[in-house]
């Protein structure tokens, strides 16, 4: 079964709930995190590390604390089970100029292990054709 990148994001909360080591890292993390795939934003509403709601696109007035943005091919490559060297970490994609962080980055930087782990969960979800 193949899922679109946005469908894979929608499946993240179920996988996160089976990942106590990630939930532990995020137990003090509360923020609305936007994930932009091309021009389409999905928002994770996160309370104490738990994703309480996923708002898929389209949205008329997206409201969020910070966002991580990249083109769909970048996300698809990043979410491969074994991404190519230097495409395997969000900081590597930032350095390559293929990913952008915007908004108030304090919650993200204060919980960077957690944010990285959540963003890597789609590697465990479906595959893209």
């Amino acid at each position: 079964m193949s899922l679109s990148p946005i469908d894979r994001l929608s499946a993240v909360p179920a996988v996160l709930n089976r990942s106590p080591e990630i939930l532990r890292k995020g137990r003090h993390f509360t923020a609305d995190m936007g994930i932009m795939i091309d021009d389409a934003m999905t928002i994770f509403l996160i309370l104490n590390g738990q994703i309480t709601a996923v708002t898929p696109p389209p949205m008329v007035m997206p409201s969020y604390d910070f966002a991580i943005s990249a083109a769909a091919p970048t996300w698809i490559q990043f979410w491969q089970p074994a991404p190519p060297p230097r495409r395997h970490d969000i900081m590597g994609l930032l350095r390559a100029g293929d990913m952008h962080f915007t908004g108030n980055l304090q919650p993200m930087m204060a919980h960077l292990f957690y944010v990285k782990a959540v963003l890597e969960l789609p590697r465990q979800i479906g595959t893209e054709q």
Partner: peptide, 29 residues
């Protein structure tokens, strides 16, 4: 420079956590 290194030393971000998380992806999977 490819990221803002000010994040590595701020009162509202734990330095040990952020320094390690910043470099974690530099380790091969």
């Amino acid at each position: 420079p490819y990221y803002d290194t000010q994040w590595l030393h701020r009162g509202d971000v734990h330095g040990g956590e952020v320094c390690a998380a910043q470099v974690s992806g530099l380790i091969a999977p």
